[in-house]
Design a protein around this nucleic acid. Structure first.
Length: 259
DNA sequence: ATGTCAATACAATATTGA
């Protein structure tokens, strides 16, 4: 079963891209990020016309996450991370899909470094770590999918230029350590596990011809619990969609799990 | 700093957040 993570950068602006992706790839589940729409503006009828159902958590203007599944909606487990009742950002949704627990994650960007935004990013990652530990205790196949807004290493297979990103929140040692603290609980970074070598960029900036010169980096990740990692058959990036008309700046990223 | 983009407030452009 193909499970996809796709940061759309606006579901209304990207609706043709999303519908054609569903038609062409027929994924078993799609985790969406950056809906940039309120709950009542979510285009559920268009998604139903494509044969899919959804659970979603929108927000005016920015953020917003969803999980799409064919025919029937996933069983919602939670919207939002525990640990901060004052957090108003729509960045986390978790649902059961068959015997899987799947989360769609839109981790804070955190730029610029040294501001409240960066502190929020690190605090949010610590809340995610605490929740991920609770999920592991269930001993189920768990898939944490999304835009993690962290480039895991300075390896050219993860980032086109470590130097260009050195001062960015996505590449800070603190951001990477916070990601490692989650992985090291016992999760598998599915894409790198499947392909230890080779560029696996998932994002190319709109500016400065980044796509044309392949100046990308890897920030969309799948973290798998042991029970899910046992079923990992393949993983990849549907890079071609980044080159289409009115594309998102992210490419759909996916795993294939055995049923 | 940016060869960019989407949404919003507001009513043609500026701001925010990527």
């Amino acid at each position: 079963m193909k499970i996809v993570s796709y940061n759309l950068n606006g579901i209304r602006a990207r609706l043709p891209r999303l519908i054609e992706y569903l038609d062409e790839q027929k994924p078993a589940a799609v985790c969406l990020q950056e809906l940039k729409c309120q709950d009542d503006a979510f285009p559920i009828e268009d998604i139903r016309a494509a044969g899919y159902e959804a659970v979603w958590h929108g927000q005016k203007g920015f953020n917003g996450v969803a999980i799409l599944t064919p025919k029937a909606p996933a069983t919602l487990r939670r919207m939002g991370l525990p640990g901060d009742p004052d957090d108003t950002h729509s960045r986390y949704i978790e649902a059961e899909v068959g015997d899987l627990v799947i989360a769609s994650i839109y981790l804070p960007n955190g730029n610029p470094v040294g501001t409240e935004k960066f502190a929020y990013k690190l605090a949010w990652m610590d809340r995610l770590r605490a929740h991920a530990l609770e999920l592991l205790a269930e001993e189920k196949p768990v898939v944490l999918a999304g835009d993690w807004n962290v480039i895991p290493t300075d390896d050219p297979d993860d980032v086109y230029s470590a130097r260009a990103m050195a001062t960015d929140a996505l590449a800070q040692p603190e951001s990477r350590a916070a990601l490692r603290r989650i992985v090291n609980l016992g999760f598998t970074d599915a894409l790198r596990a499947r392909y230890p070598k080779g560029a696996l960029y998932t994002f190319w900036d709109y500016t400065a011809g980044a796509w044309q010169r392949d100046a990308g980096f890897r920030i969309d990740h799948f973290l798998l619990s042991p029970q899910a990692a046992d079923r990992l058959a393949d993983a990849g990036v549907d890079k071609e969609y980044r080159g289409r008309e009115k594309a998102s700046d992210h490419a759909p990223t996916w795993i294939d799990l055995t049923d």
